[in-house]
Structures are given as structure tokens and as C-alpha cells.
Design a protein around this nucleic acid. Structure first.
Lengths: 219, 219
DNA sequence: GTATAGATTAACCAAGTGGTTAAATATGGA
DNA sequence: TCCATATTTAACCACTTGGTTAATCTATAC
């Protein structure tokens, strides 16, 4: 065998492609820029991956795994319901704050390259661990049965939670423009997000005895 | 003067550019495709607008006005608070459902062309009608004072509401993949969205007398 | 050492890209 | 009618694009 074990080149190229495509999107990314970013000759991109599309497909898998990883992060489905909800939100928001670009890229690409993104997403989903929706639904339905939270459709609840977690970080520049905030204020607001969102959700779903009218503390 | 009044050509080009750029994004849009879509010679694009960037800028204004128009749509700030909130949500979601592509495009472009999008957004905002945030905050704060809803930061509330309104329609293909839904089910879910979201928000914010424990009806 | 395989490069290419131009065609006022 | 101007077109251009190629380098197994 004459195979030098190094071949970190391929990894360098992937990393560079990842950086550049997250910067400009698929259509806007240039093979030359990727090569420069990786510090290799452009021909090497075609040597390791035949075409730009192949490179895109490769990093798409990586992006999707990171997006899903972020959303599935360390969720403790066995925790008490309020803790579960707050942990869910806090985990998401922290991870999203540190991966804003990935989410932005992903959302953009969904619509620019739907035919490629959706199947790739499905594939990554299928060989991932158990179905998020099912686990989530089971936990929520249990809490409903035990009268810890009010009756609610788990599908809509899951979408609501993810919406509240993610959207702010997609629209940050716009929100800050609308609200005429300084960078400092934006940072402050981002830091508050986790608690604000968790409170908002918990206030909406927690069970309240109609007759005695309280459970947990008012904010 | 020798100016033929017609010049619908310019409008045709803009409309075509709008269509094509919403389809492929700025980087992916081709001048030739725009020309074909408009049914005119490619040189005409440069005759009316000098460059691709100029075309982009032109349609960007249109897109932003439509996005803002959608979000500012027929809001009755004088309505009773619950009606106000539900109307706010219902108005948004209906408009967004009919303008999904615009929102998708807009969100994508925010990050791919931030330097251009954000200033354009600011500009359109400035010569629009009164500040949405201020009107919204005033309405919310009044409701808080009158003990119709619980105390809450209007900025976060506004973001929460917009998140819940918009995000689902940005991620539809992904949500449906995660939840393994048929097109029928997706449509059904989209139709339910407005009520689900309005309920979710209202349950979270409506005032509850801690002692007697109720106000309004339970769902 | 040297044969052999993979890894890397500079130079190249055809097909597109946004953009230009000069000539042709309308259009309307005199 | 004829002219001046606005509009439209086909042909063109310089440059960039993704992708290829043939030659060179590098490392190992023998």
C-alpha cells in the first residue's frame, strides 16, 4: 500500500468549503475562494470531490447534523416538566447563539435548494436517534395527564418552542434595526432571551386549577 | 417631448426580476433568465437599470415594503386587548401564508447581503407610518396597567409574537419532514396555526387574579 | 535506489457571466 | 412629411466560472 495516512487535505477543503458557503450561500460561493481558504490548488477540490455540487452535498450533511445536534442537545426527558421545558429552551438558545450562522445558512438553503436539502435532512433524521417528536409528545402528553400542564397539541407546542428559540437569532439585524438598539442592547437582549422565552412558554402551558387558581409562583 | 407614456417595459422587467430573484436569490439569479421572464432583450435590463445590483436594490425595496406591509397589516390598536392580540396574529398569519416566498427570500438575503438589506430596511422603516414597536408597547403597557394581562417586556413579547407567526412558514418543508406529514396534513396544520398561536400567546399573557384564579374561560 | 502509487500543481478550456455598442425601429411633435 | 428622441435589438466583449489535463512531486514498499 502506498497511502500516506495524512490526507488532512480533504478535511481542510471541507472546512474551507463550509466557511465559504456559510458566508455566501451555495450560488455565491466560488471554487477559487474555497481553494484559497483551504490554502490548496483549485484542482484539488475537483480531485477530492468531483464537482461543486458534491462539495455542497458533503457540507450539507455536516450542516444538517449540526442543526439537528443543536436541537436535540442534552434534553432530559425524565426531568420534572417545568425543568424539562426550561432546560429544553435554555439548551437550544445557548447552542443557537453559538451557531447562528449555521441556522441562517440552513434556513436560506431550504428554499434556494429545496430538492437537495429536504431529502438530505430526511436521511440524517432517519439514522439519528429516536424521533424527537415522539419523545417530546410522550413527555408532554404525560404531563397533561398528570395535570401539570394544560391540554395542548404537542406538535404545535414543539413548533412554538422551536420558533421562539430560533427566530430571534435569524432576524437579529432586523429586530435591532426596528428597535433602534445599540450593539450593547442587542447583546443584553440576546442574553435575556432564554429566560424570557422559557417564562413565556411556561406561563402559557402550566396547569392552573380553575377553582383555587394557582400553582407555582407568579412572576 | 417625445416620451411615449407606455414604458410598461420597466415594470415588466422589475416584475420578472422579482420573480427570478425570489426563485434563486440574488447570486443565483441570471440576467438572461430575468430577460426571458420579462420577454425582452437582455440589453434592456441594462438600459433601464444600469447593473444587476441596481435591479436588486430596486426589488429589495419592494420586498421590504411587502414584508413590512404584511407585518403592519390592519392592526386595530384600539380594540380590546384579547381581540387586539388575536387580530394581530390572525392578520399576520393570513398575510404570511400568502407571501411565504417573500419572507423566505427576505430572511435568506438578510445574511447573504446584510450590508445592503439592513440599511434598505431602515430606510423603508423611517418613512413608514408610526413606529410599530412604540404603538405596540403603548397598547401592551396599557393592558398591563389595567390588569388585563400580566406584566411583560413589550419588546420580547413583540419578538415572541412575530416568531410564532412567521417561523413555521419558513420551515414548513422541514417541519413536515420531521413530522412525516402528508401534504394534506401540512395544509391542515397551516390552517390551524392562527388559532393555535393566538391561544398559546393569550394563555401566556392574560391576567389571572391569584386569589380567585380565573378570568375568561379555560380551553 | 527505484518503481509505483497517490498527491499536487500550473496552465488551460469551453461555457457562461454581466455588461456594451452600434445600428435599427418606433414614436410623436413640427 | 421629416426630424429628434426614446426604445429595442443582435452581435459582441472582457472576464469569471466550474472543470480538465498533463506534467511534477512525494512517499513508501521492495
Amino acid at each position: 500500500m502506498v497511502r500516506p495516512v495524512d490526507s488532512k487535505t480533504e478535511e481542510q477543503i471541507l472546512q474551507a468549503a463550509y466557511t465559504v458557503m456559510l458566508r455566501h450561500g451555495k450560488a455565491g460561493a466560488r471554487m477559487q475562494e474555497i481553494a484559497d481558504e483551504a490554502g490548496v490548488n483549485k484542482a484539488l477540490l475537483h480531485y477530492y470531490f468531483r464537482t461543486k455540487d458534491k462539495i455542497y452535498t458533503a457540507i450539507l450533511g455536516k450542516v444538517i447534523r449540526e442543526v439537528l445536534g443543536t436541537l436535540l442537545r442534552k434534553i432530559d426527558f425524565e426531568a420534572p416538566i417545568e425543568e424539562f421545558v426550561r432546560g429544553f429552551v435554555a439548551g437550544h438558545i445557548e447552542a443557537i447563539r453559538h451557531n447562528q450562522r449555521i441556522f441562517q445558512f440552513f434556513l436560506a438553503e431550504i428554499w434556494l435548494n429545496r430538492e437537495e436539502v429536504v431529502p438530505a435532512f430526511r436521511e440524517v433524521l432517519s439514522d439519528g436517534r429516536g424521533n424527537l417528536l415522539e419523545l417530546f409528545s410522550a413527555r408532554i402528553n404525560r404531563a397533561v395527564r398528570e395535570k401539570e400542564i394544560r391540554p395542548i397539541d404537542p406538535r404545535h407546542l414543539l413548533i412554538n418552542v422551536i420558533s421562539l428559540d430560533v427566530f430571534y437569532f435569524l432576524g437579529t439585524p432586523i429586530f435591532s434595526a426596528v428597535m433602534e438598539m445599540t450593539d450593547q442592547q442587542v447583546n443584553a437582549m440576546s442574553a435575556e432571551r432564554a429566560d424570557q422565552v422559557a417564562d413565556f412558554i411556561w406561563e402559557s402551558i402550566r396547569y392552573r386549577d380553575v377553582k383555587t387558581g394557582r400553582k407555582g409562583d407568579e412572576q
